[in-house]
Design a protein around this nucleic acid. Structure first.
Length: 588
RNA sequence: GGGGUCGUAGUUCAACUGGUUAGAGCGCCGGCCUGUCACGCCGGAGGUUGCGGGUUCGAGCCCCGUCGACCCCGCCA
């Protein structure tokens, strides 16, 4: 097709030009003796009207239906004075068509692309092509494309090279559930799809490539969420002879560049560094949304010696009392306050104690259990202004209080309209513990992954308190979403041995599971570290979507099913047999 | 595995306290219409109220189960 012109860019400067357009019928307006239709391509819409001197065209236009695919030839004309459409980018002009060819007729679609965002999501997923035709989705994927390109430029300019790593890899014992790929050639053996290229990128460092990156699919067989799909895309990065500061600086440069090039926004760097413990204390989360201008305040000392049983029992058990300011809600009804207490129970709290700054000064529904000094100190510590309520939570377990008030903080941000609009607030979370105790397994697990370097001084200092050892790990958080996580890795065989020991792996186990990495560490491994970004989440935030499904072309439902193609599909017995398998429950 | 929201025409929604023949907008079909742009006007077709069971004289509505979509907790090194 020769010299195709795009619809969206036409304007009065093209007046008189002969053009050939191709696209979809968006809407037909047939007035009888006169007719118009809007033609849509990936650039936008333009109005077409048949040239009055080609009468046979009138019939073709009368028969046009939504989403028919056309080739249109004609002349760009300024519209008659008074009939311009200022709400349309191409509203100054129209195409006076001399030829309209239906390249492909469309049957009546279940919904129109321009109305797709209003229909139920299962229908949109089933007829994915129609949804993807919508202007919003087209825009989303074009931004995602520009994201890929900017990422590649950034890392290329910083000396990183793109190397592909295998998709058929060795199953990993730790971490998320693997997707398994049974081997046909070797009965009883299986590959796994990679949860991330973690070990391979470390091997590339040992191999002397110095700096690597890859935009790569990763696979995790875990339950889904708005921001989690079983296959997702990482920007995977690793560099040699580096440290936390250098990794973070390069990634801050990447973020600044992406926001500048893709959205025209200048974001300040460096980003705030928040120690993990502090994030939990102030925001009740290790991925705080800094757009919400509220912080949790510790009030434990205010209530030392309190005779209020809700507090005294918690204090006796070594627990904490913390509070959050809720701005402007002092006029709430009793019912509204009770409803929030009910919500708080859902967040794991045993309840909420309120202190109010109302017309009668500092008051509380629990006033008879609290001294005036305690209420005043609470109001002061929380910074209550006239009209605010302080919500207090107490629990013997401080992480319960942190998590509950963290949820309350998010609720307040959303429901009280406190979230700063149009803002992108980044921060680094640092000083993670290296290990977390898993009560189910009765052992410590790597909080990040088993190749994360501990702070070596901590390793020496706390031989008997593994939970005090910090990891050289860092997460990048944007508006309450973890968008990247990384660490400085272990490059010394002996340190790796000690970490495996802390994780409860015997030397034989470690050898069987990660022997190829351990061997590499013995052949001259440079100090190295890196990070991996969740590209889908970045794209979601940058386009303002609520779910990564809106930036993934063909996503799965929360039940991990593709409504479009029906995967996973029942599979015939002979195909299973090739893999030396037989399903316990026959799906087919 | 657990909690929650939703499911009525192709689609988006309505239908009082359980009560006649389940309605409306858009879309679809037919007709009219020479400057529309959410074109307008006239007429029409279109329903297993997700599915199964129960209560009732009577169920879209109440109860139980089930299926599906979405949100959250667990899980996600």
């Amino acid at each position: 097709m020769k010299h195709r012109t795009y619809c969206g860019a036409l304007n009065a400067s093209h007046d008189g030009e002969l053009v050939s357009l191709a696209g979809w019928v968006q809407r037909v307006r047939d007035l009888g003796g006169l007719a118009f239709f809007d033609l849509r391509d990936h650039t936008g819409l333009v109005q077409v009207t048949p040239d009055p001197h080609t009468p046979d065209l009138r019939e073709i236009v009368a028969g046009l239906r939504h989403e028919d695919v056309l080739e249109v030839r004609g002349v760009v004309r300024r519209r008659p004075a008074g009939s311009e459409n200022p709400r349309m980018a191409t509203g100054e002009v129209e195409i006076s068509a001399t030829s309209v060819v239906v390249l492909s007729p469309a049957k009546t679609p279940p919904f129109l692309p321009e109305e797709a965002d209003k229909v139920q999501e299962d229908l949109r997923l089933k007829h994915r092509v129609l949804h993807l035709r919508s202007e919003r989705m087209q825009r989303n994927f074009r931004l995602r494309h520009r994201l890929y390109q900017a990422v590649r430029r950034h890392f290329d300019e910083h000396g990183f090279i793109e190397i592909e790593t295998p998709f058929l890899v060795k199953p990993t014992p730790e971490g998320a559930r693997d997707f398994l790929v049974p081997s046909r050639l070797h009965a009883g053996r299986a590959y796994a799809l990679p949860q991330s290229p973690q070990i391979y990128k470390q091997l590339l460092m040992v191999a002397g490539f110095d700096r690597y990156f890859q935009i790569v699919k990763c696979f995790r067989d875990e339950d889904l969420r708005a921001d989690r799909q079983p296959e997702f895309t990482q920007i995977d990065v690793e560099l040699s002879f580096t440290d936390e500061a250098e990794v973070q600086e390069i990634m801050e440069g990447l973020m600044a560049r992406l926001f500048h090039e893709l959205l025209g926004l200048e974001i300040p760097t460096p980003f705030e560094r928040i120690p993990y413990e502090q994030a939990l204390a102030l925001y009740g989360s290790d991925k705080p949304d800094l757009r919400i201008p509220l912080q949790i305040v510790d009030l434990t000392t205010v209530f030392a010696g309190s005779e209020f049983r809700v507090f005294s029992e918690v204090l006796a058990a070594g627990g904490v009392i913390r509070g959050l300011r809720l701005p402007g809600v002092a006029s709430w009804s009793r019912k509204q306050r009770d409803d929030l207490v009910e919500k708080a129970r859902g967040w794991g709290l045993s309840g909420l104690v309120y202190v109010m700054a109302g017309p009668e000064g500092i008051t509380s529904p629990s006033a008879k259990y609290l001294t005036p000094d305690q209420m005043q100190e609470t109001a002061d510590a929380l910074g209550l202004q006239h009209g605010d309520i302080g919500a207090l939570a107490a629990d013997a377990d401080k992480s319960t209080v942190a998590a509950g008030l963290g949820q309350l903080r998010l609720w307040a941000g959303r429901e009280l309209g406190l979230v700063e609009k149009g803002a992108f607030r980044h921060c680094w979370i640092v000083d993670f513990p290296m290990l977390e105790y898993n009560p189910d397994q009765g052992r410590y697990e790597a909080a990040h992954h088993p190749f994360t370097s501990p702070v070596l001084a901590d390793l020496e200092r706390f031989p008997d308190q593994p939970e005090k050892i910090r990891a050289r790990a860092y997460d990048l958080v944007l508006n309450g979403n973890e968008i990247a996580g990384g660490s400085i890795r272990i490059h010394q065989r002996e340190v790796q041995r000690r970490v495996f020991e802390l994780l409860g792996f015997s030397p034989e186990e470690a050898q069987a599971k990660f022997g190829f990495l351990l061997e590499a560490l013995e052949m001259g491994a440079p100090p190295h570290g890196g990070i991996a970004f969740g590209l889908d989440r970045m794209a979601m935030l940058m386009v303002g979507a609520e779910s990564i499904r809106d930036v993934i072309a063909f996503p799965k439902t929360t039940a991990a099913i593709s409504l479009m193609d029906g995967s996973p599909a029942p599979t015939p017995a002979d195909q299973w047999a090739d893999l030396h398998l037989k399903p316990l429950k026959q799906g087919e």
